[in-house]
């Protein structure tokens, strides 16, 4: 369980990122963290991992204060950063040097993931492409069997087949004791993967709802004309792709991009629906 209470964070007095943010994240879920550029997605993830320090507020990660960076907590965190550097060694040496720090590291699972990602095992990490390195680091992170998996833009640099592989692997990696948080601005990459959406906007959490809750309260469909029930719409070839209040309990598929834009532009209309 992860608890954030009244988190205030800013890089400078002029650049306030979070104002009194509070939320709880539970195990057994894949959270999709969305937000515009500069909304603070990466910073929120860094706060959870103890890589930056908040001005005030409290963060509790499995009973630990992340700011203390205690080994017992770090063993439970797998952080896949957007930018990373891997040493000029082979995968075997990398695993030898790092895996021993994680008591639940699963070597067989790591080998299976590398196979699934089609990574040449004998190659030096420095000679690999960015996408291949990313796959290695994702495979390593998942093989640590850490309880909290944090991924910052994990699909950046992955080719189209790899993105599908990634979704498949992540879906199978979720267990009851794991909490997975994926931050991205490529919302389509998270289709059918996440079960809860968290959106950051204007220093606050603009939306935190399960996919089920969203599709229960909102309906995503194509309409020919706009009426007062439409909360947000985008023109398409055959009319409009619209987000509407789901008064008639209609089944619809969550369109993440549409929801994202709706939250950003029509937050006043959506607020009463989700409160």
């Amino acid at each position: 369980m992860i608890k954030i209470e009244n988190l205030n964070f800013s890089y400078s007095k002029q650049r306030i990122l979070f104002k009194d943010i509070s939320m709880q994240l539970s195990n057994g879920h894949i959270y999709g963290l969305l937000g515009k550029n500069g909304a603070g997605k990466s910073t929120l993830l860094k706060n959870l991992a103890g890589l930056v320090y908040a001005q005030s507020g409290k963060i509790d990660v499995f009973g630990f204060d992340p700011a203390k960076r205690q080994p017992a907590m770090l063993q439970q965190i797998c952080f896949i950063p957007e930018e990373f550097h891997l040493p000029a060694i082979k995968i075997d040496s990398y695993v030898k040097a790092n895996a021993a720090f994680y008591p639940h590291f699963d070597h067989q699972y790591f080998a299976d993931l590398l196979k699934e990602f089609d990574i040449p095992v004998g190659q030096k990490l420095i000679d690999m492409s960015y996408g291949q390195k990313k796959k290695v680091i994702i495979a390593f992170g998942l093989a640590t069997n850490a309880k909290l998996v944090i991924m910052d833009e994990p699909t950046n640099g992955l080719d189209i087949p790899s993105k599908a592989q990634f979704r498949k692997i992540m879906a199978s990696a979720l267990t009851e004791d794991k909490c997975i948080i994926i931050s991205t601005h490529q919302v389509r990459d998270l289709d059918n993967l996440i079960d809860t959406v968290i959106m950051l906007d204007e220093n606050k959490i603009a939306l935190k709802a399960t996919v089920e809750e969203v599709t229960e309260k909102l309906c995503f469909k194509r309409v020919k004309e706009l009426d007062e029930t439409v909360i947000y719409a985008e023109p398409s070839l055959a009319g409009y792709n619209a987000v509407m209040a789901n008064y008639h309990q209609e089944d619809s598929k969550l369109d993440m991009e549409l929801l994202f834009n709706a939250v950003l532009t029509e937050k006043n209309k959506l607020k009463p629906i989700f409160n």
Binding site: L51, Q70, A72, L74, Q75, F79, P81, F84, H85
Partner: peptide, 19 residues
Amino acid sequence: AHLGQKSKAIIDLLIPAST
């Protein structure tokens, strides 16, 4: 020195060893 570079620092700071 590498802690001044974000790409290297994150992985190093998160290695499960105490400060």
